[in-house]
């Protein structure tokens, strides 16, 4: 297996991240911890390489904050919804396996969308089809086709949020075009 020696776009964020993790674990952000952490991060990135992740080169912090806020709200409401379902419906629950076809071709956004969907109680990813960017979700309390549509819409909304954070220019333009023509 060969890999380009040092690609700045993918390695620099990884090295910074590893350095911060190192310092966080030592609970010390002084130079005495940061500099060894940085050196270890470089060694780790060069010796234990991961399959390259296709980053788009853009990252919108404002969108990230908005997305995190919505994620937390969803998390709390969905947690209580599932709790209520456990009490009120329990064994009579009807579920569904729903296929959602995403717009993106990027592995990173596909994975992130799957994660966000799995983390919010009420739906989790059962199967991923990378070739066609399709997520197969198991969802609680789906009785009518309308409920399934609501799930699809909410997953696509998560994906749109993630594209706004770190999608490519092209995906973002397509998203804007889609939103302006309802």
């Amino acid at each position: 297996m060969s890999r380009q020696k040092f690609s700045l776009v993918t390695d620099i964020p990884l090295i910074i991240w590893l350095t911060l993790v190192w310092s966080a674990l030592w609970q010390d952000f002084g130079p005495g911890t940061l500099i060894p952490g940085f050196i270890i991060a470089i060694v780790v990135v060069n010796f234990f390489y991961l399959p390259p992740v296709g980053l788009s080169g853009r990252f919108n912090v404002l969108s990230l904050i908005a997305f995190s806020g919505r994620f937390l709200v969803d998390l709390v409401t969905a947690s209580f919804e599932v709790f209520w379902l456990a009490i009120s419906k329990g064994p009579d629950l009807r579920n569904a396996v729903v296929a959602v076809r995403l717009r993106t071709r990027s592995d990173l956004i596909l994975t992130a969308t799957g994660h966000v969907t799995s983390l919010v109680p009420g739906s989790f990813v059962l199967e991923v089809d990378r070739g066609s960017s399709t997520l197969y979700l198991h969802c609680l309390n789906i009785v009518t086709p309308k409920d399934a549509d609501a799930v699809r819409a909410s997953v696509l909304r998560s994906e749109a949020g993630l594209i706004r954070i770190m999608g490519t220019r092209k995906e973002l333009d397509e998203l804007r075009a889609e939103e302006s023509t309802p």
Binding site: S79, P121, L140
Partner: peptide
């Protein structure tokens, strides 16, 4: 209360996240 493996999985993820 949930009837099968897959619906129980939903309950299991909750304390882990929130």
């Amino acid at each position: 209360r949930f009837p099968d493996l897959l619906s129980r999985m939903h309950a299991a993820t909750k304390p882990q996240v929130l």
